[in-house]
Design a protein around this nucleic acid. Structure first.
Lengths: 241, 241
DNA sequence: GGATAATTGACATATATCAATTTTTTTCAA
DNA sequence: TTGAAAAAAATTGATATATGTCAATTATCC
């Protein structure tokens, strides 16, 4: 069984130790649990690995699990009618996945799909609920976390509806650089089709828009490595919409 | 001072009695407070009335108030760059306004503007915070309420980005009928420009799209009274995007 | 070497923009 | 209160632009 004691380092644990995740993530959410509560919550967790393209959480289902991402990259997708899908957000390691559910009727509002190999832990949501009812701080922090997620997605969506193509492409590129890869020449695991879905347009339109940025020497790319050459201009394009 | 005792009806109170709002709204949020807590929270509330067009909460400010709407209609607006604004949601009586703030850094994510005359109570958010930290149930219910709001807005935005004009117009009309006015010939206090902003398009485009629906005998309108004549077809248009 | 992804071009369509006109609402003095 | 003037909102038309669709071609990856 998994070591969840936080007062002493658990040297024998590898990646799957909750303690390690909590230290790395520097998250307030689980820190508000006592050792006993954490043990209660995590003692029944299941470690799962997803391959690229696999679905972690499926929209409109009522799976009763809460998911901690230990490692990997995933996308939050809203599946609209007629095969249209919109990528609302990307997910890094140390994210907590509720997909809009858990708190409201457990109906998942989004699909979450692995982009790279994703290692995660599935936690029973009934246990989570029990803790939510009894531990104020925990409940506050978790819902606050959830709220932050929603606000982020809302802001991204507002930009998608307010801006023209160049602005949306700029937003996507800046998001990837600043929030996901945090590096400048960065290598994406996403296809052009994914990037287009993040920018609410067709892949052809994304390619054309991206090409224009390349012709203006604002970005550069080789295979799946993208470099932002002129961030100032790119930011201006993002701002102007 | 305002009567907040819920165990006995307060007959001498008129509209501004918290008890009355709570009974009418049938909301779980404040029911999770004890009499004493409610008294603590509400004893310093301020009653405010806004005229049509006035701003209740302004995006990007950090006003430290939590607002209960007692009566009236308001719009939640995201103010984008270059005067573009998007109406994310309408607000009825007995809504609780946080505008994305209160829980996260108190920075308001949206502007809330009165459409009709809006009567509301401003509650000090420091008192609210104190209660949030100490009353689990309350904190859970409030954040759950907030979460539901966000999910609603997200779903509306996803539809706005996924659908073409006719689908978006249909969505707006069905939303007004089913969720806001709950009547069939209904009289809106919103301008065509507002309706366009709810549908993420220019007012000219809204008018043209609406006219097509009229020509197909799906809707009808006279001044600001709108009637949905063929809801089945309108729903089909909404679904087909 | 076959599948998948990326790219390009030609074209159709959706939607915005701008300017002009009509209608409705508001204002305010008589 | 009325009713004319002013302001605001709704409508229409002509046109420009943004974006999607479809089909063909090329590059890339196991």
């Amino acid at each position: 069984m998994i070591k969840v004691n936080r007062t002493e380092r658990c040297d024998h644990c590898t990646d799957v130790c909750c303690h390690k995740c909590m230290t790395d993530a520097n998250s307030y959410v689980f820190n508000s649990l006592s050792d006993k509560e954490l043990e209660y919550l995590m003692s029944h967790k299941r470690e799962v690995t997803f391959n690229p393209g696999e679905t972690i959480i499926k929209q409109n289902t009522t799976t009763t699990h809460f998911v901690c991402v230990r490692n990997g990259l995933a996308k939050v997708v809203s599946e609209g009618p007629k095969d249209k899908s919109l990528i609302l957000k990307l997910i890094n390691k140390h994210s907590l996945l509720t997909a809009g559910g858990v708190i409201n009727d457990d109906v998942r509002q989004f699909t979450i799909t692995a982009i790279s190999k994703v290692e995660c832990c599935f936690v029973d949501s009934e246990r989570l609920h029990n803790l939510l009812i009894n531990n104020c701080k925990f409940s506050y922090e978790l819902l606050r976390y959830n709220n932050k997620w929603n606000i982020d997605m809302l802001n991204r969506l507002v930009n998608l509806t307010n801006k023209y193509m160049p602005g949306r492409i700029a937003d996507t590129l800046l998001y990837l650089k600043n929030e996901i890869y945090q590096a400048n020449p960065f290598t994406v695991q996403l296809s052009k089709s994914d990037l287009a879905n993040m920018s609410a347009m067709t892949k052809e339109s994304f390619i054309r828009g991206f090409k224009e940025l390349e012709e203006s020497k604002i970005v550069r790319h080789e295979n799946r490595t993208i470099e932002i050459l002129n961030e100032e201009d790119l930011t201006r394009i993002s701002k102007n919409g």
